[in-house]
Computed example of a mutant assay.
Amino acid sequence: MTSPLGVILAGGLATRMGGGDKGALMLGGRCLFDRAADRLGLQVAGLAINANGAPGRLVEFGLPILADSVPGYPGPLAGVLAGLDWAAARGAGSIVTVAVDTPFFPFDLAERLQRGAQRAGTQIAIAATEEEGRLRRQPVFALWPVALRGDLRSALEQGVRKVSYWADSHGAASVLFASEGFFNINTPEDLAQAEAMLPEAER
């Protein structure tokens, strides 16, 4: 398997955290950008950050900063499109996306998504968890093919915003993971809980 590129999605407005860059929040003495880059960087052939606003504020991370090409903060699909355009310029065939506010995502995310897509014979694979006996997708943790970027651009221009809706129009596979890896930080209380979840060695 050829390793995909990786894109950290951080283009949201973080309204429940009071605005600003959620990736700049500190967890165990390290910011969420650093944690996501370290964890995803082990799994992919190159990294970028999808973020809007002045890119200079993120220069310290030494990664390409990809702004949405669709105006109005249309959601995660715009970040996926930005990542696919970047990957296309680098001659890559696919990307794996993660959310910056989910610091414990699996270390084998990319590999398992690729294998899941291969088994299902599809180009898109989305992480999922089982909760109360039901499958729940984690739609921004996914494998996306560069070949579909034109279709995604058209869908966004037509008003499509729901990740799963567009993904399912291309037969997306679901790949099951343990739910613990997808705890996400939306509020100050969530951040405190994430601190409690850190391994002792990281505190």
Score class of each variant (00 low, 15 high):
14 A>L: 02
14 A>W: 12
15 T>D: 14
15 T>V: 14
15 T>R: 12
17 M>D: 15
18 G>Y: 12
18 G>P: 11
19 G>F: 13
19 G>L: 07
19 G>P: 00
20 G>I: 06
20 G>T: 01
21 D>Q: 12
22 K>V: 14
22 K>E: 13
24 A>R: 13
25 L>Y: 04
26 M>L: 14
27 L>A: 11
27 L>Q: 07
28 G>W: 07
28 G>T: 02
29 G>H: 05
30 R>S: 15
30 R>Q: 14
31 C>D: 15
31 C>K: 00
32 L>W: 01
33 F>K: 11
34 D>F: 07
35 R>P: 11
35 R>K: 10
36 A>I: 05
36 A>M: 11
36 A>K: 01
37 A>S: 12
37 A>R: 01
38 D>Y: 09
39 R>I: 09
40 L>E: 02
40 L>P: 03
40 L>F: 12
41 G>S: 03
41 G>T: 00
43 Q>L: 02
44 V>K: 01
44 V>W: 05
46 G>Y: 03
46 G>Q: 03
48 A>I: 07
48 A>Y: 02
48 A>R: 02
49 I>M: 00
49 I>S: 05
50 N>H: 15
50 N>R: 03
51 A>E: 02
52 N>K: 06
52 N>S: 05
53 G>E: 08
54 A>G: 07
54 A>Y: 10
55 P>R: 00
55 P>E: 09
57 R>L: 07
57 R>I: 04
58 L>S: 10
58 L>A: 09
59 V>Y: 10
59 V>W: 08
59 V>N: 12
60 E>H: 09
60 E>P: 00
60 E>S: 12
61 F>R: 00
61 F>P: 03
61 F>D: 06
62 G>H: 10
63 L>C: 05
63 L>M: 13
64 P>C: 09
65 I>A: 04
65 I>L: 01
66 L>F: 10
66 L>G: 06
66 L>H: 09
66 L>C: 08
66 L>R: 04
67 A>C: 00
68 D>T: 08
68 D>K: 03
69 S>P: 00
70 V>F: 13
71 P>K: 05
72 G>N: 01
73 Y>M: 00
73 Y>N: 13
73 Y>D: 11
74 P>E: 11
74 P>H: 12
74 P>Y: 03
75 G>I: 05
77 L>A: 09
77 L>F: 01
77 L>I: 04
77 L>D: 03
78 A>F: 06
79 G>L: 04
80 V>L: 12
81 L>S: 02
82 A>N: 09
84 L>V: 05
85 D>H: 13
85 D>S: 04
85 D>Y: 09
